[in-house]
Design a protein around this nucleic acid. Sequence first.
DNA 1: CCGCATCCCCTCAGATACTG
DNA 2: CAGTATCTGAGGGGATGCGG
Lengths: 127, 127
Amino acid sequence: MSTATKNGKRVFLQNEDCPIRNVVSQVGDKWSILILFSLVEGADRFNSLKSRIQGISQRMLTQTLRDLERDGYVNRTVYPEVPVKVEYKLTPLGEGLAKSLWNLVSWADTHHDEIRQARENYDQSNR
Amino acid sequence: MSTATKNGKRVFLQNEDCPIRNVVSQVGDKWSILILFSLVEGADRFNSLKSRIQGISQRMLTQTLRDLERDGYVNRTVYPEVPVKVEYKLTPLGEGLAKSLWNLVSWADTHHDEIRQARENYDQSNR
DNA sequence: CCGCATCCCCTCAGATACTG
DNA sequence: CAGTATCTGAGGGGATGCGG
């Protein structure tokens, strides 16, 4: 895991190739997970995605899709019709990622109230 | 999941309280996961964490620990010795989060090469 | 030992306008 | 329809110096 050990404790290496960072830093941004989970239900087109992911700008949708494509999570297919149609689809790698994210998402869903409660308590104590 | 449905497709709401965003935006930052996984092995002190997480600055370690504490993932205990000793420890909530992140991390580890390969291919094609 | 305060750069991301 | 280009403000995060 790009880790070493030092007096019995795991040390996380800073280096370029830490898999945790390489994956999480991509997936952890503001939009990637939402796009990923939108595409789990099947291929979809640019503007359809845009309307399903509320609040995303055209710019960020384009950019995030490019990044996801670059990492091999998403395939982009252009259908040269008029007007143009572009479809985005998860690759097997992308489906694997989404699957391994599912735990996290359902955990987040279950414990959401608990977290919000903790935040309130903390903010009240420290003001 | 803070989602609705529109002609058979899931729509992700933009609103304040999307659990996915609330959890992922915290955990998805540059350092949180590394700290979380460092603490899975047991409570630890500030400077020990600092030396285990290579490249983290004092500022970001402090700040990220505060955020994790605020969300209820981490407990902070001050031992008024001389010099002071401060210990950080996962709460049950934090342990639950770490556990649900484990899938993702091990997936990342397994597919790291595949992703790097995809990146290289993409970068070569688009230059 | 464990922080907080300050300064400062650089990237992220929204708004807007324009193309094939 | 599916983008690209440009401008801009907000904030993430490093470096450094001080304080209990």
